[in-house]
Design a binder for these strands. Structure first.
Lengths: 339, 339
DNA sequence: TTGTAAGCGTTATCAT
DNA sequence: ATGATAACGCTTACAA
């Protein structure tokens, strides 16, 4: 309890060396003899000593911490977009390997990343996951750049912007829709948001459109259903499609959650998946394998994504040039598309 | 980029006061005149100043950071037990409200001195989520106590241990199994691990046993299937049950993941859920609402859990006495149990 | 109410 | 290779 923590002076005394030598020994400085290093480590272990990271950070000016800001709450019960979970896990793992501490924060809507939260000096850089709106995000990001805080954002991939890492959304969607067409589907509904406030979804729409075009199919506005990325949204969108008598034999959703909602509504209305309607989602949430039928989907490679994000941030912190990264996706065929 | 950060001395000079006054003004000390406070804030804003948190932490010895250590990897793809996700989210939210930064770390198996206790000075206290084995956990926890590091663990609730917060596992299981019995089920299989290495699962078994006993049913060892908390485990366990010709009309699983696996195997083998076999899980993962049929389950209240964990840690940090907390569960009846 | 000055526990810069 | 000693930027007695 009230035990005073040992300092490097205590270790020095026990090991019979100076405090400076203790510091050197513990920070792997080559300028210290094996014999002394051994004695120091022994003493440290004996006293259960660990370096005071705050003193170290203050003095060395290296913080060795990155912050992950998650700013997309789906709803009350799901404070985090489920896709971000394995991504966060992968970031924690890889950043840990690289020796970074990771601060995680759920951002409120209102927060302006730079000022309100004041990450300055708490982290060497920021990884941004999720944004409600593209313009809003741009404004906030500029604030960060203004104060010289390195940051990377997940999602869209912009040609000029090194701080952007995202999946190859257009290609992933293209492959999914192409697969549906190969299965003989001709009237493929698009569930998603093609607005400009989420460029990554826009990219998925482009992939959808290209697949249709290249196969001689035209885009039918009646098959475009606007929805965001919740299960309820997907359910409502498909219900709306059915209600207005749209004729479709497949559904491509820009995320797994709405795809699952879509399947549930279809089944409830007596349409068999995949016999009557094929369904493909996007993300490959772990729950995709839990539905009946199991959901076919476009997997985003969270491990590669995490590496790209952390590596990019790493280089920005070191003031090295950074290129935007487009992470390949992979079509996972399960039962819901029927082949 | 290479701009040198302003210090409180710079603010002091600009505002025409001493550095100490700047510190006081910025840390909301009452002992500072409104006029001066205004000048200081103005100067700070003008120079884009923020306090160096590391210097502050070093000097004040208040770190205002808690660390969440997650040490249960289900497998490669799921680095985090899905139940911990909303719990982590709730912790991030509530701890943020309380003004704490949150360091999150996925713990590797390796139980080295520096790894386990390295967080000691980085955080005021530790929240431990998941442990591979009870004895292993006890060993680590004692080490933490030895160095005077406050910690709380999620899971088991031990009478004497203030640092334990968990669901009322026995009661939750009792209610679930009682519900099955009310529905007319008599041969209820138990999917889980009743070993001593996870006391919380042991508690769920006790609730199962009590419900049977109170309803005049006896425990049939043939209906006890050992499994851990993955979907694959649950699938294998039920497959085993069927293979050895066990006669059962319901399944109670100690977690949703094995419950989902169980449902999938049952359906694949031509048994209808819930007509032939009722299934109830435990956790209420968000995916529970995505299965067909939707999974009935025992919900753990992650919001209340997070509050209890953070509040307890808070009090331990402040050296106040802490009582163990048992968070109530709630039976969520969906389709998989048939009523 | 404000200023002065003494640390907090490191790392970095000199010497030796 | 090691030892003094000076920062790092802040908080907090203690004085005024």
């Amino acid at each position: 309890m009230g035990v005073k923590r040992p300092t490097s002076f205590d270790i020095a005394a026990l090991a019979g060396v100076s405090q400076a030598t203790v510091s050197r020994a513990l920070s792997q400085s080559p300028a210290v003899s094996e014999e002394v290093r051994r004695r120091v480590f022994e003493a440290a272990q004996q006293l259960n000593y660990t370096v005071d990271v705050n003193a170290r950070k203050l003095r060395s000016k290296k913080i060795n911490t990155i912050a992950v800001l998650i700013s997309e709450d789906l709803d009350q019960d799901n404070p985090i977009n489920p896709f971000f979970v394995p991504l966060l896990g992968a970031i924690l793992k890889y950043a840990g390997q690289k020796g970074y501490d990771v601060l995680t924060s759920l951002q409120q809507q209102s927060a302006s990343w730079s000022n309100d939260y004041g990450f300055a000096r708490r982290a060497d850089g920021l990884i941004l996951l999720g944004y409600k709106d593209y313009d809003d995000y741009v404004r906030k990001a500029e604030g960060l750049s203004d104060i010289g805080e390195p940051w990377v954002v997940w999602g869209l991939v912009q040609p000029g912007a090194g701080h952007s890492v995202g999946s190859d959304n257009a290609q992933g969607a293209y492959e999914a829709v192409s697969h549906l067409i190969r299965l003989g589907r001709r009237r493929i509904a698009f569930l998603g948001e093609a607005s400009s406030s989420h460029p990554e979804f826009r990219d998925r729409y482009d992939g959808y459109a290209r697949a249709l075009r290249e196969n001689g199919l035209s885009i039918d506005d009646d098959l475009l259903a606007d929805c965001f990325i919740s299960r309820e949204d997907g359910a409502a969108a498909v219900a709306g499609l059915i209600a207005r008598g749209a004729n479709f034999d497949a559904v491509f959703a820009t995320a797994d959650l709405p795809a699952i909602g879509a399947m549930q509504v279809l089944q409830k209305q007596g349409r068999r998946v995949p016999q009557d309607v094929s369904v493909i989602g996007f993300d490959d949430l772990w729950a995709a394998a839990c539905t009946t039928p199991a959901l076919s989907t476009v997997r985003q490679d969270t491990t590669a994504a995490a590496r790209a994000l952390v590596d990019a941030l790493d280089r920005m912190i070191a003031n090295e040039p950074v290129e935007p990264v487009r992470v390949p996706t992979r079509l996972i065929v399960r039962e819901s598309c029927g082949g």
